[in-house]
Each structure stands twice: as C-alpha cells, then as structure tokens.
Design a protein around this nucleic acid. Structure first.
Lengths: 195, 195
DNA sequence: TGACACTGAGACGGTTTATGTCTTAGTGTC
DNA sequence: GACACTAAGACATAAACCGTCTCAGTGTCA
C-alpha cells in the first residue's frame, strides 16, 4: 500500500503532536518524521504548521464521519437514525486513542478544538455528512439545527459523562433522543418519509 | 509539608523532561512549572539547564542509594551484603517509573546517562554510599574496585536481561556473586570481619 | 523603624532556532 | 526531450531562548 505524500505528512503530523505537543513540534520534525523534505511539505501545505493541523483535523473528521456512516446506514426510522448516530459517535470518540492522548497531554488546546475554536468545523463537517441521511425526515433548516444540537450534545456528554444519560448505550440514548423528536416532530413536515 | 525552592525546581525539572524531553524543555518551562520566577531559578542554579539536570541526577542518585541503604543494612555476611546490594538495586531500577519513561521517550540520552557519560557520577555516588558497608571486609582499593564492578554489572543486567542470571532474584544473584567472592577473597585481608 | 534576605516581574542584548521562500540538481515517466 | 516531482540546502526574516540585570514588593529579625 503506497501512501501519498499528503497522507505521509499528515500521519507524521499526528505522531509528532502526540509526542511533542502542538506548540513544540516544528515543521522540520514533521518533515523528517514523514521522510519528506521541508520544501515538499510547504509545497503541499502552503502556510506551514497552522494549515497542516487544519488539514489534519479535517481529515480526521472526514474519517470519523466516514466510519460512522457505515454504522448508521441501516437505520429504519427517524428515531433509530438519531439513536444510532449519537451512540456510534460516542463510542467512536471513546475509542479514539489519538484523541485520548491529546486530551491527556494538551487538554487546553484539545478541549478548545472540541468545544470552542473547533466547533464550527465540526458542525460543518457533521452537517455535510449527516444532512443527506436526515433530509428524508426534515427540511434543510431543521436538519441543520438538529445536527448542530446533536453534535454539541454528543461532545458534551463525551467530555463530561452524565449520571442521567449514557450516550454510548442505545437504550439510554433513546431516552435522550425521544424528547427531541417531539420538538422536531418530523411527522408534521411535508415530506413522506416512508414510516 | 513545605518544599524548598530547590526541591520544587528539581521536581518541576523531572516532570518537564518527562513531558517534553530534555532537548525541548526550556528554562521558562521549568520555572513556571515550579511556580518560580526565572530569576530565582538562575539564582539557585547558576548555569541553567545543564546545571539543573546535573543537580537532578545527583539528587536522584542520592535518593536511590538512601532508599537502598535501608534495605541492605541488616546483611550478616559479606556475601549476603553483596547479594542484597545488587538485588535491591536491580529491583529499584525496575520499579523506577521516571527512568522507564525517560528510557522510552529519550533512549539515546538516557542510555548515555546509564552507560557512558553518567557512569562516573554513578560510580562516585555508589562508592560514597557503599564503601562504609564494604570496608569491614575489604581495603579501600578493593572496595572501590568491587563497587565499580557491581555497579556496572547491575546496570548492564538491568538494561539487557540475561538468560543466565536474574539479578532481581536473590538465588540467582547469589550464584552471580559467588565467583566474585573468590576473586576478592575477603578472608585474605588483614581485617577481622567477624565471620 | 531600618537593615537584610529573598522573591516575582520583566527589560535588555546576544545567541540560537525556526520559518518560509527560493534555487539547483537529481529521478522517474510519458 | 519535455514534464512533474522531489531532496537538499542556501538565504534572510522572524521568533524563541538564554543569561544577566534592575527594581519594587514582602516578610523577618533586631
């Protein structure tokens, strides 16, 4: 399996920031870890470290939602879709080793990427991936709002587990989702969603 | 329990070099980790990082042998003393978390401190602590030679375990020590060592 | 109160390290 | 032979770090 230079560099970026932290890693570190010259790195990622980390986060989000889609593809109802979505997302977050390492070694920056600075990107990517699944049940505006809410909730319950809900557990997640359904009450939309 | 500024700084040095590595840590990091201004750090450790790490290594060696002394104090014979010494040292090395972290994250520098650049210091401190225990059985020159040999052997068998000896096991350690006894044959010294 | 020791904060100049751009030469492909 | 891509490294700029120093604030003891 032959990796592209972009992927080699992004992989190296991930390893380097696990090891040295985001602030301390240098472009030289990443280039040599990737087995690539610094010139090549700047050609593929003009702008240096910032662009590099941005690209890494986007790629990881893409991978995250791509993996997720295979899990939630077979949902049979609107409720089932939402439950699967937050359960899968929660379990995937909990299983993410890189995220765990970054949370442990650089909590400030990592939390920022999950709760403040990074939220717009997360919402954007989540919307891109999930909207097609939700549109059978909701209009665009409702879809965007729902995804926004669910993404924030999933992150919050991942970062700070609650004694009331465990979004990694389908039963608990369902009891969390149900009140939301009445708010969005998809049965009042003009679409025939087939169930 | 009130720590002195020196101890706070050395503790911070240890934490920082576990986290960022010896090369990447800065004096500012250590100072702020210690909750101390940079001026104070330079006042207490003139010379900066090098002096700081040197002081840290000396302190850790002191603690190492101080802990050891309490374990080997009750030795009843020359052989018993030597066995206890290498067994205790070996077990203590194996239990040293900081050492494990440093070996994992910065093997080059750490191995250097155990096998090359750091050996003179280790031998010096070991000699200081252990000579008083050995002098009942050997003269000064023999003591120094024996401690030199045992320290190097302990380190070597710690870093690269052998299939022939396990210096953490008293029985195996005894079989390792015995041939040495005949070399140093303390029964030929002019001292009456009481056994 | 005043002398004294100690500290944090931060300014300073000098040095090292990192950055981003650029050129050159080498390699494989079509 | 034209083309795309790359490693290596020179280069000037920018940033970080270093070590020293000053100054003002704090607590202690006489």
């Amino acid at each position: 399996m032959m990796l592209s230079s972009e992927d080699k560099i992004l992989d190296a970026t991930r390893r380097c920031c696990e090891r040295w932290g985001i602030e301390r890693v240098t472009v030289d570190d990443i280039a040599s870890e990737a087995g690539v010259s610094r010139a090549t790195l700047y050609r593929l990622f003009p702008g240096g470290k910032d662009i590099l980390f941005e690209a890494l986060r986007v790629r990881e989000l893409d991978e995250f939602f791509t993996r997720m889609l295979t899990e939630i593809a077979g949902a049979e109802s609107f409720e089932d879709l939402l439950v699967r979505t937050i359960v899968t997302a929660t379990l995937e977050l909990r299983a993410d080793e890189h995220l765990a390492i970054m949370l442990a070694t650089e909590p400030g920056e990592t939390l920022g990427q999950l709760t403040a600075a990074g939220v717009p990107r997360i919402i954007r990517v989540a919307t891109t991936y999930l909207t097609p699944l939700v549109t059978p049940y909701l209009n665009d505006r409702q879809s965007a709002q729902l995804i926004d809410v669910l993404a924030r909730a999933t992150i919050s319950y991942f970062l700070a587990p609650s004694e009331h809900f465990d979004l990694g557990d389908p039963v608990s997640a369902r009891s969390f989702i149900r009140p939301l359904l009445s708010v969005f009450h998809p049965h009042t939309t003009s679409l025939n969603h087939g169930l």
